[in-house]
Design a protein around this nucleic acid. Structure first.
Length: 113
DNA sequence: TGCTTGACAGAAG
DNA sequence: CCTTCTGCCAAGC
């Protein structure tokens, strides 16, 4: 294994998107995961923001359950009210503060399925 | 070429 | 609880 590249080459970027889509696609119904986990598993622990960026750029490219991706505190994405609705439809419980109950629905992704 | 923005994380006020 | 700041890093302007 090598160090993290200072700059993502097209190849790395492609691999990153592939990993993100792969992981997100594995999220079971009624479960959620975090950007940080996805980024870390994809090989870049600090690229949590790139996960969200990538998902947003590939929204129409796939039917990925990107609504099952929330941040570590269980907060849904800002400016995306629909995410909470979709999660509730799947049976995900929300706390009184409007956050997902991570203790119950947090799912840890794995590349070696 | 350099500053700003953002589907984040985490702490602080 | 909510807002704001810093750190992180790629994309946008």
């Amino acid at each position: 294994m090598q160090d993290y590249p200072n700059q993502m080459t097209p190849e790395q970027s492609r691999a990153f998107r592939d990993a993100v889509q792969n992981i997100v696609g594995q999220i079971p119904c009624g479960r959620v995961t975090t950007y940080g986990h996805i980024a870390a598993l994809a090989g870049w622990p600090s690229h949590s923001r790139m996960v969200g960026r990538t998902l947003r750029y590939t929204l129409g490219a796939s039917e990925l359950p990107c609504h099952r991706v929330v941040n570590k505190e269980g907060r849904t994405a800002p400016g995306w009210s629909r995410q909470r609705i979709l999660l509730e439809e799947e049976g995900v419980l929300f706390k009184a503060n409007g956050h997902v109950d991570m203790a119950k629905h947090l799912w840890e992704p794995s590349i070696e399925l």
